[in-house]
Design a protein around this nucleic acid. Structure first.
Lengths: 228, 228
DNA sequence: TTCGCATGTCACAATTCCGTCATGTGATTG
DNA sequence: CAATCACATGACGGAATTGTGACATGCGAA
């Protein structure tokens, strides 16, 4: 797993409790006591997920969620809202604000971790280290091994991440810009054509087992991996 | 076996009983009558496992478990909780608090030892003294002997621990930071590249029997031992 | 003390990988 | 059918990463 989670919570005791549990589960934790603090952190680098308290001094959690959803750079970050209220009304409002999930205090650490895992899997499955398999092509992040029909396949670091992303997001067409963003990462300045070259290298590596046909070119749009 | 076990128990008779049993089984035992005492010991050096009484004067066992889990330095230490209660609720809470296992008083020495062994095997198999063998390469912690295809292999202390760790965690990729953490141990201020040098030394030693090929470099990630 | 071994660090060599470009190829359009 | 467009491919120089030999240090045994 091992994701970076930004915890935005003004109550120190609760922040601490959450942080401890997350760290125990192998996540990296950034802490913020307010939306303003959180924003300062986000400006530097993007977390993989945000745990956001509903009630915050200054900008409210809900408002901050809207802000994150509003900006291109942060739109994709999964958000889980924390709240003491249990009313259905709030839940709906929270989800409308753009949260991916919603947790009512008090909650058990187990539940917290389960939700995080679920949300990450839904929104960013390439960040988990579960092995993926498609049509006899198997990729295992933990061992960093790729095998096609039994035979082992060697990939460079970038091709590995690229394939991992494709396999965790099959069927969908990804533009070069999207791929650069999600495989190369935030804040990179690279020619879009570079993607083509890496696609080429990936296909070449997959040729041995015939899995290169899984990577399809969608003219004038981008690339897509076949899921079956 | 020969692990260092920290026993945190306020009742002297029980502490004594446990300590004697553990020592008889070949473990080194540190004793503490409270969480505060335990903490003083832990500050100096890390035990391999903590036996933690649920009810303690001052900071409770559960709270202390949380604290251990909260700090980077102590997060990985296996914890077994001791309690007089048998209620399921407590058990769950204890496990959530981060305990690896849970022992209800009264328990037999045999059971205690078995649980310790099981927990160590699960959380830190490199701390048990079971012999390991992979592809004709055999390492026996008890006798500190390594043999490759019949021929004996001599290793320095660090290379031995490194190989032991690899053999107890095969296939997985380990980053240099992880290796430093788990092979070099606590309180190390060592360059990451030092790992490379020891990998080199280990490979050199394994060359004689051809087992050096089991240690693979995973560019941009770390190293991995082949399991078959 | 002196010797030998183990260790950590460095500098440099050897690889591998990456991003870019030039050019080729096939599809699309007018 | 020619012009154009989008992608494929091969090559290349430089960047990044890892391998390797050498050395200083520290520690314990002789």
């Amino acid at each position: 797993m091992n994701s970076i989670v930004l915890v935005v919570e003004d109550e120190p005791a609760i922040q601490e409790l959450i942080a401890i549990n997350l760290e125990h589960a192998g996540h990296r934790v950034w802490r913020a006591g307010s939306a303003e603090e959180a924003d300062a952190l986000v400006r530097d680098a993007l977390p993989d997920l945000v745990l956001l308290d509903w009630m915050l001094p200054g900008i409210s959690g809900l408002a901050y969620a809207r802000k994150l959803r509003g900006a291109d750079r942060t739109r994709r970050i999964p958000i889980i809202m924390l709240t003491a209220r249990t009313e259905e009304r709030d839940k709906l409002e929270g989800l409308e604000g753009g949260a991916d999930d919603y947790l009512t205090k008090p909650f058990s650490p187990k539940e917290l971790l389960a939700r995080i895992k679920a949300v990450l899997r839904r929104r960013a499955p390439e960040r988990t280290d579960d092995a993926v398999e498609i049509s006899g092509l198997r990729l295992d992040p933990a061992t960093r091994l790729v095998a096609g029909g039994g035979r082992e396949i060697t990939l460079g670091p970038t091709e590995f991440r690229l394939l991992h992303f494709f396999m965790t997001h099959p069927e969908r067409v990804h533009s070069r810009a999207q791929l650069l963003d999600r495989v190369w990462g935030d804040h990179v300045f690279v020619e879009e054509r570079t993607v083509d070259v890496h696609i080429r290298r990936l296909r070449q590596a997959l040729e041995a087992s015939g899995h290169d046909r899984l990577i399809e070119t969608v003219r004038s749009s981008g690339y897509r991996m076949r899921g079956a």
